[in-house]
Amino acid sequence: MKNRFYSIITLILLCLNVNAQQTIQEKLGYSKDAKLLILHADDLGLSHSEDSASIYLLEKGLISSGSIITPAPWFSEMAAYAAQHPNADLGIHLTLTSEWQYYKWGAVAGNDKTKSLLNANGYFYNDLDSLGKLARLAEVETELRAQIEKAIHSGIRPSHLDSHMGSCFFNKDFLKIYLKLAREYKLPCLLNTAAFKMVYQVDISDLITDKDVLTDNVYMAFPANRLQGMDAYYTQILNNLHAGLNCILFHAAYDDDEMKAITMNHPDYGAAWRQEDFNFFSSEMCRRLLAKNNIHLITWREIKDKLMP
């Protein structure tokens, strides 16, 4: 009996050790050398143009995920879509900034509860430095929680959390709130320790637990990348993608009058840029690159359902 007890304990410990050593690919049911990729459209709810282009890509199976700006003017369109398509992989693009010159939004929680997050006109600041300098942490949490609750009450079944303009990654105190909410709502969140260290020169490894889901690589085009051509930039990424959990963030919309007006005097991530993103990810070239490099498109919902049930 004693030997049997020790055998059972040994087997349990061995299983725990195997699980601890498994890669994210193996935990999700793929081979250890699998190249997993989330093709992720940001800024849904920003405009009808943004919504239409992103929904097209999602419904055609050309991309795997998107996230919605709850305070944005076209949120209701995406909420209605999400309610009618409960299995769509849609997350919440937690937002604390309003960067466009004339097209603005403010707090979901109400101005009286978020005064430190708003400028004199009652809108979110258009830059991260002002946010980081003036925001009170309690009000940051109040607003982010209100955005999640509004999305859920509007019929959205969020698959994950991420952050508009990286506002939730501004410093470790903001990140702690982001992680707290993700864990509380049992949602995976976009998280990459290497990117945080590179951009913000801060090590966040002490905040991460074994229950958090980390991406191995996150990619997003910056102005310098666009100069080389968007097709060339994304092609290079797909041709050199490593095994692990990867994510490409992009912004799909049409270069129409609506997007031109919204992004006036803001060429970076403007209407033409977003059309270029749409063009690439809707192209036969993109499909061929995914197939040639044996890349598996996966969703945040798959991660949530398998690793955070």
Rank of each mutant, 00 (worst) to 15 (best):
I298P: 00
E302K: 15
S47E: 08
N19F: 09
I92D: 13
H296Q: 01
E99A: 09
S64L: 06
H160W: 13
L11V: 04
R274T: 15
E50H: 01
L137Y: 03
Q84G: 15
Y200Q: 09
D127P: 10
C189S: 01
T263G: 11
G270Y: 05
S47G: 13
R4K: 12
A20K: 05
L134Q: 15
I8N: 14
L13N: 00
T97L: 03
K2T: 12
N3H: 10
F196C: 11
K150R: 09
K133V: 06
L96W: 10
T70Y: 00
L289H: 06
S205P: 12
N126E: 04
L161V: 11
S52P: 14
A34T: 01
C15W: 01
L44I: 02
P73T: 12
S116T: 11
T95W: 14
S54M: 07
V199K: 12
S159Y: 10
D203V: 11
K113A: 09
I69M: 13
I148Q: 01
P267Y: 09
D43I: 08
E302D: 08
T97M: 06
M230R: 09
D255R: 09
S7Y: 13
L94E: 04
M220L: 12
L37I: 11
E276M: 12
Q25H: 03
C247Q: 10
H242I: 02
R226P: 08
Y6W: 14
G270T: 01
Y125A: 08
V218P: 15
P86T: 08
S49V: 08
H164R: 14
I12M: 01
D33M: 05
L187E: 05
K113R: 06
K176P: 04
K104M: 12
A83M: 01
L94C: 02
D162E: 04
